[in-house]
Amino acid sequence: MRNLLPVLTVALALIAAWYVAVVPMNAQWERDQAARAGTELAFGDLVARTMAQDRPRLPAPHQVVAELWESTWVEERHGRRGWWNTGSLSNRSLVWHGWVTLSATMLGFLIGTGLGVLLAIGIVYNRAMDASVMPWAIASQTIPIIALAPMIIVVLNSVGITGLIPKSIIAAYLSFFPVVVGMVKGLRAPDAMQLDQMKTWNASGVQGFLKLRLPSSMPYFFASMKIGIAAALVGTIVGELPVQQGGLGVRLLSGSYYGQTVQIWAALFGAAILAAVLVGIIGWVQRTTLKRMGLAQ
């Protein structure tokens, strides 16, 4: 909590810098308009107008917040196609687009994490697997495997697999490798002394895994899950670009097609909020779990 004041100050400074940047970014348009109308713009007027443009180059923070509010609560509560009027989420609302992205992200993340943990166990217990697979798992961290995303979407679409699954596959393989690398490190965290101790207690292999290796891997597991879920979200968003069937990625792309800057920023913040919530949930589970295990620092 002692960091609260500095953090708030920095956040406020960022928002203030944003507001200051809005004026020069949008001023040209207003000056052109004024010149065309043959009028002079007072500085106060200019500032006020740059904050309220329809299609600004840089929307002001309050415009983005207003758009977020409009495209979530207002759209669902009062919109013709909203939840309250039709009983289903409006396809114009960020809630629906966010859900499309979230569901693919979560499915992919769960698959990727599950398989990643399984492979990590295999690597730790099988030296041939370790020597064969591990270098490639590490190398995969250095190359842009997200470039595969458009191809996976289009190829799976052409064989009739559409919707959630292709995006989830991308999210899965992007979260898979960080989890493998992190979990291998974690399962190897116990030192030789601790492993020997298990042996002196005549612990079986399964006991050694469940009571020593698995618990010691937990800090690494949560750290790699945080990386994994962020990667899964980015993968899903990129996976939504080639086939326009809803999702935050589609909002970003269609916003840029039609010059709807406020919509782009709202989608961007929607994605940021989603990422923050997901990482925050994992962080919370991490803190409570590690505290109960006595591993918290």
Binding site: L233, V234, L252, G255, I264, L268, A275, A276
Partner: peptide
């Protein structure tokens, strides 16, 4: 940790 890649359409 945020998907900063989403700023791409803005930068374009």
């Amino acid at each position: 940790a945020l998907p900063i890649i989403g700023t791409a359409p803005i930068m374009v």
